[in-house]
Simulated assay, not measured.
Amino acid sequence: MKNSYLTQDNLQKFIKSALLEDVGTGDHSTLAALPENVQGAAQLLIKEEGIIAGLDLAKMIFEHYDPHLQVELLLKDGDKVKAGDIGLKVSGSAASILTTERLVLNCMQRMSAIATKTYKLNQLIKHTRTKLLDTRKTTPNFRMLEKWAVAIGGGQNHRFALYDMIMLKDNHVDFAGGIAAAIKATQEYLKANKLKLKIEVETRNLDEVKQVLETGGVDVIMLDNMDCPTMKEAVRLIGGKYKTEASGGITEETLKDVAECGVDFISVGALTHHVKSLDISLKAV
């Protein structure tokens, strides 16, 4: 697993927590309706076109709940799929399959939606050098899987959380007394606490870009809610000295134009907070 947040420990913690939320004291519908020790099989049916994500996780969920379940993955995460495709087959205890069904589907439907949207947007800017980033606009307690889905769809993960990168947004700058004050205070904080974190600063206009350039000591300059002429001028002023990130209200319709301004990255919160679940079901066979 190439992303540092995707550890076996983190995934197992998520699965345990999610099963506790959903199963609680027991799946009484299944316990009531099924005779003990009934065996069965089911397959994951894809009902619409997209990019599949969460198959590896589905296998972990099934096997965590019941190590005796047999799971066969017929596709891999990141594959293009269409209606009628079968993603996996699972066999063993019918009760175990029924109890884990909803958690598997909830994860896979949302992850696949995010991977599909990420792939679609990436296709719009593939002729440029610009990379697509996600944000922290994620579902509480589901961030790890949403960022995993972005990576599966071909996007790049921005900082995972507040602890792994410094991002000085407009409110930080305003409360700190300006860009220079915010950057200098941050540098002193990192030095005092022996931390090595990248620093990104949000700018709202060309004057603020110039202030960052005059102050220095950062890694990324965010160009927030700028129109294309202003953004092109900002990129020219920065001249490759720092990485650039475009952000703020960027849509599917404007993404291509923004990428063609020459920025290194575009962050799009809608990758994770504005998607429609991919239609997937688990059917007994």
Rank of each mutant, 00 (worst) to 15 (best):
T118D: 07
A259H: 01
L121Y: 13
V90P: 01
V81L: 02
L6M: 14
Q156S: 08
K137G: 07
F175E: 11
K232D: 03
A259F: 11
T272N: 05
D77G: 03
N171Y: 01
L69F: 11
E188V: 08
E208Q: 14
E253V: 06
F175L: 13
F265G: 09
T230Q: 12
D170N: 14
S29V: 11
L31V: 07
P67Q: 13
G248T: 04
V220W: 03
L34A: 08
V218F: 08
D79A: 12
N106T: 08
K210Y: 08
L271D: 00
P229M: 14
H274M: 11
G78C: 03
E63T: 14
L103C: 13
K184V: 13
R136F: 09
L132V: 03
G92C: 06
K126C: 15
A18K: 12
P67N: 14
R129P: 07
A234S: 09
F14R: 01
M226S: 03
D79R: 05
I250G: 03
A259M: 04
T186E: 15
L74A: 09
K210D: 14
E202A: 03
A259N: 13
G216K: 08
L278H: 01
V150Q: 12
E214N: 12
M1A: 05
G178Q: 15
L105K: 13
L121K: 00
N193A: 09
E252W: 00
S4N: 14
G216S: 14
I221V: 12
E245I: 00
L103F: 13
F175P: 00
A53F: 04
I125Y: 12
Q187T: 06
F142V: 02
L57S: 01
I250H: 05
L73M: 09
T128F: 13
R136W: 07
K82N: 07
N205F: 02
R136T: 08
V209R: 00
I46P: 02
E253C: 03
E72P: 09
D174R: 11
E146M: 12
Q12K: 09
S4E: 07
E214P: 06
N157H: 10
E260G: 06
D9F: 10
M108R: 05
L124E: 12
T100G: 00
L121R: 00
E63C: 14
D9N: 15
L206T: 02
G239V: 03
V285K: 08
G84N: 04
V104A: 02
P67C: 06
R110H: 10
I86W: 03
L88R: 01
T135G: 06
D27I: 02
E188A: 14
G178E: 11
S281Q: 05
K47N: 06
K120W: 04
T118K: 11
R143S: 07
G50R: 06
